[in-house]
Write a protein that binds this DNA or RNA. Structure first.
Length: 351
DNA sequence: ACCTCTCGAAGAACATCGCC
DNA sequence: GGCGATGTTCTTCGAGAGGT
């Protein structure tokens, strides 16, 4: 039994995006930038504080001999975990330095609306396992589509602690009937609040993780549900015995859920046995689909897309994909370095 | 080969505020 | 007045660098 862990740098998503753009602007040309480099960029824009101070004073107060106790260092460390999940950072030469992914320039240079759409797509594409973030626990899950689907099958509402016991604690979301089982599980919990609390406590005991900490894990997920406008946070009465803060699907969220049902959720494991020509072509193809879903016009690339579809034909058939628009796969978050390099080279040949 | 020590990743907790 | 959200700070642990 293990729990999917999200870092807890905060829950203000727009700030995290703004921070990313600031870091990108400062370090765009730097290869293998470190936590300290990024910290300096954050400081420059007044985006972090430490011990009640900002700017260089914050740096001064934050620095410890033991780096693991350095608060600003830790802040960026947690940001970096999330950016990696989103496919915005990729590992550099070491575990402690980073490079920007292809997406970075789109995010930083995009109009406000585009950066939000890119965030949404990346959020939906967060999936474990993946090559960017190690997850030692081994949970297999694409959490956000699962959450949307759950809510829409449960009176349009989901609660924080349900998210922990039913989603973060889920071991494998690809098992047959797992979705239906999870719905039933939550319906049963909803008979009374004590049952939910008991489940949370049980999970805490089984995993050795404090309930406090488990709740820390939900900050980014819940912040994201709000930021995207898929959910509203409000006091919900009538589901549990007492009134409780919950998250209610908006019209926006309902539409997104519906859209997702038409897509084929692809995990890297399903394609890893194909040869690199197929995988590389598919990687490039999926990047066009990804950008289109972010709102970019790709009609000019139609001939390339047709060619790539042919080149990855076996793979697409294997997945049961008839048209590229149903591909639900983020190359920035799921593809290996080998596949990305192949795709890049292929792309340059088309120009 | 084994030992030691450092450091970063991961994990946990504290502090405070606002709201029901 | 208690709960939840959030920003911030503190703790644990194991990998691996470097010494013997």
């Amino acid at each position: 039994m293990s729990v999917l862990r999200f870092p807890n740098p905060g829950s203000d998503i727009s700030k995290m995006i703004f921070t990313y753009i600031a870091i990108f602007k400062e370090l765009e040309t730097k290869r293998n930038f470190t936590h300290d480099d990024a910290r300096d960029a954050m400081i420059k824009y007044g985006l972090v504080s430490s011990s009640g101070a900002i700017g260089q004073e914050a740096v001064r107060r934050s620095v410890r001999d033991d780096r693991s106790r350095d608060s600003l260092y830790n802040q960026h460390k947690m940001y970096s975990e999330f950016y990696r999940m989103l496919g915005w950072y990729k590992p550099g030469t070491m575990n402690t330095n980073f490079n920007f992914t292809e997406l970075s320039s789109y995010i930083a240079k995009a109009e406000q609306d585009y950066s939000k759409r890119i965030f949404e797509e990346c959020l939906l594409s967060i999936v474990f396992p993946n090559p960017l973030v190690e997850n030692k626990k081994g949970n297999i899950i694409r959490p956000f589509p699962f959450i949307l689907r759950l809510a829409s099958n449960l009176e349009g509402v989901i609660f924080r602690d349900e998210l922990i016991v039913a989603v973060l604690a889920l071991q494998n979301d690809t098992l047959v009937d797992i979705f239906e089982k999870t719905v039933t599980y939550i319906k049963d919990l909803r008979k009374n609040k004590r049952k939910l609390s008991a489940e949370l406590k049980k999970l805490s005991q089984n995993t050795g993780i404090q309930t406090n900490t488990l709740q820390n894990y939900t900050r980014i997920p819940l912040g994201s549900l709000k930021y995207t406008g898929w959910f509203n946070r409000k006091t919900i009465r009538g589901i549990y015995s007492a009134a409780m803060t919950g998250f209610e699907l908006t019209k926006n969220g309902q539409e997104k859920t519906k859209l997702l049902t038409m897509l084929k959720d692809i995990r890297h494991e399903e394609i890893e046995n194909f040869d690199i020509n197929e995988r590389g072509s598919f990687t490039l193809l999926s990047s066009f689909v990804f950008m289109e879903r972010c709102g970019y016009d790709i009609t000019n690339f139609e001939p390339i897309i047709i060619d790539l579809t042919q080149k990855s034909n076996n793979l697409l058939n294997h997945l049961g994909i008839r048209h590229h628009s149903s591909i639900f796969y983020s190359p920035y978050q799921q593809a290996t370095e080998e596949e990305l390099n192949f795709a890049k080279e292929l792309d340059s040949k088309y120009e």
